[in-house]
């Protein structure tokens, strides 16, 4: 009777292949999610790379308020805050805002600031020409630093966005940094 039946092994192989494919797909969701977020501004994260400033016409008819907030994640005792709470800016205009950080501890530390924008949609129109958040920030024991963030807003920013907030959460990365890396980082500082 089995001779009338199709060969199981072909079907089993196909199904196993599907399983392997779906396992891979689970991991592929990670970059897919990132791309999706980048295109739609889904999770409100700003780009990790510096935007090259495009000569654009400054739209003086509109003003957008950009608010800055900071927060330290658990376990990092730095003082970390923006030098100014908010700026009013015309789309297309370039502004620099400084963030102040100090390391009050007795050891050298490295931190990473993670940006987030609310409403998330605004992240699509926030172009950072320069930002301390692109790299990890080392601070020697007891020292402080002024960290710049230079940005402009894409003139395509929709009219309904009149105010948005840019937040930075500071994370301690010291444990992931070897002594040599630390020395290197502090030297280039």
């Amino acid at each position: 009777m089995s001779d009338q039946r199709p060969d199981n092994s072909i079907l089993v192989k196909r199904l196993l292949l599907t399983v392997a494919g779906m396992f891979a797909f689970g991991f592929a969701l990670v970059p897919l999610y990132d791309v999706f977020c980048e295109v739609t501004g889904f999770n409100g994260r700003t780009s990790n790379e510096a935007a090259v400033y495009q000569e654009v016409e400054v739209d003086e008819s509109r003003t957008v308020t950009v608010q800055f907030i900071t927060r330290n994640a658990k376990g990092i005792p730095w003082k970390f805050e923006p030098s100014i709470k908010q700026v009013k800016i015309h789309p297309g205009e370039v502004k620099v805002v400084n963030f102040l950080a100090s390391n009050p501890t007795s050891s050298n530390m490295v931190a990473q600031a993670i940006p987030s924008v609310a409403p998330a949609e605004a992240s699509l129109y926030l172009n950072k020409v320069e930002c301390f958040c692109f790299n990890q920030q080392p601070l020697a024991a007891g020292s402080d630093a002024e960290m710049p963030m230079q940005f402009y807003l894409d003139p395509d920013i929709p009219d309904h966005i009149t105010t948005f907030t840019l937040s930075y959460t500071l994370y301690d990365m010291t444990a992931n940094t070897s002594a040599e890396q630390m020395a290197q980082l502090l030297k280039t500082e």
């Binding site: 392997a20 779906m22 396992f23 797909f25 689970g26 969701l29």
Partner: peptide, 8 residues
């Protein structure tokens, strides 16, 4: 289709 995603 989905158990492998859970495994991931």
């Amino acid at each position: 289709a989905v158990m492998p995603v859970l495994a991931g």
